[in-house]
Design a protein around this nucleic acid. Structure first.
Length: 331
DNA sequence: AGCCTTTGACCAGCG
DNA sequence: TCGCTGGTCAAAGGC
């Protein structure tokens, strides 16, 4: 009896904690562009609080314990799309009474599941590709659903990954995608790496462009003196002073990506294209302070955009103007 | 020939 | 124990 009270208490605490965590997530996602995530989180939060309140009223526990196999007791959703992860051992609960080797049906039901909501691309009525290969093996009209549920599995027979796609009646361009298991064939890992590299690449492009703009504005300040001239054209910029003329194409203002960007590496760009801008030949008439300020500003840009280290070749220039916390020490 | 989707039948869980 | 339901299988046909 005492043991039951203990479990009831634990479950109530777990539900309330989950509700709190979900509410915090909802707060983060409170954005009109993320309606679906908010909607999903709201449903989960209400469900958590309902369960907790039922337990406190002493009404729902036995039913809940019986159907525990399909309840999510404590793990709160962790990602931004709030996929819900069902514990594999909980799902396996009701199948353990048999000593038989589990059938494919049972094996698949025992797999951990996570749910995501995706929207069809504009003009399309199918869910967007998730980058993984799937083979459809069934379709079924589910009771109470307007659209049939589609069943997919990995085309590699040895791989146990599955997914179910259910079009939502109230929002026909939204699909509930439930993934079962993970791709033991390795395609998921490969895909995640590619995605990571693509994200890193985009980020680098943005930072690179920002850095380019800063460089350009500083160069303008540095060379625009009565003795120098600065011309900006569609193809690039031209500096000149009493001794020399320098032509720098636009392409030099955008750093070139290195061949294998990786999140743990230094800022993954080859900055050699910039170095000649700040070599001895550049007609800098505004003094060294200008270079230091430039280095500090670019450094700040990198720092704001994640754990990207300042390019080593500018370390000396940036030395005096670096912020006190050294990002270069980050692992 | 090989891979795919479709679809009715079958299986297992649950009330 | 039985019926309902969701999930899976596998035959058939298409590309």
């Amino acid at each position: 009896m005492g043991e039951n009270n203990f479990w009831e208490r634990e479950i109530v605490i777990a539900e309330l904690t989950k509700g709190k965590e979900l509410m915090l997530q909802l707060q983060k996602h409170f954005d009109p562009m993320k309606q679906l995530v908010c909607q999903y989180l709201a449903v989960e939060i209400l469900s958590s609080y309902d369960k907790a309140m039922s337990l406190l009223n002493g009404t729902a526990l036995s039913g809940m314990m019986k159907s525990k196999g399909k309840e999510i007791i404590h793990p709160a959703p962790s990602s931004s799309t709030a996929p819900q992860l069902e514990s594999p051992h909980l799902l396996a609960d009701s199948s353990t009474k048999s000593c038989d080797r589990p059938s494919n049906y049972r094996k698949r039901k025992m797999l951990a599941r996570r749910k995501e909501y995706v929207e069809a691309r504009p003009g399309e009525e199918v869910p967007p590709e998730d980058g993984l290969s799937w083979r459809k093996y069934g379709q079924k009209l589910i009771l109470g659903e307007k659209y049939p549920r589609e069943y997919y599995r990995c085309p590699r027979r040895c791989c146990e990954a599955t997914k179910m796609v259910q079009r939502i009646e109230t929002e026909p361009l939204t699909f509930e995608v439930t993934y079962g298991g993970s791709h033991s064939c390795g395609q998921e890992t490969k895909n995640q790496n590619e995605e990571l590299i693509a994200v890193q690449q985009t980020k680098c492009d943005e930072v690179g462009r920002g850095a380019g703009q800063i460089f350009e504005s500083y160069i303008h300040k540095m060379v625009s003196t009565p003795n120098n001239s600065y011309n900006n054209s569609s193809t690039g910029v031209e500096f000149s002073n009493s001794n020399s003329v320098f032509n720098i194409p636009n392409s030099d203002f955008i750093p070139t990506p290195t061949s294998s960007p990786h999140p743990d590496m230094d800022f993954p760009f080859d900055y050699s294209s910039f170095t000649h801008l700040f070599g001895q030949d550049v007609p800098d008439n505004s003094g060294n302070d200008s270079l230091a300020a430039l280095a500090a500003e670019v450094y700040k840009l990198y720092e704001e955009n994640g754990k990207l280290n300042f390019p080593h070749r500018y370390d000396k220039q940036a030395e005096n103007s670096r912020p006190s916390n050294n990002v270069g020490d980050q692992s």
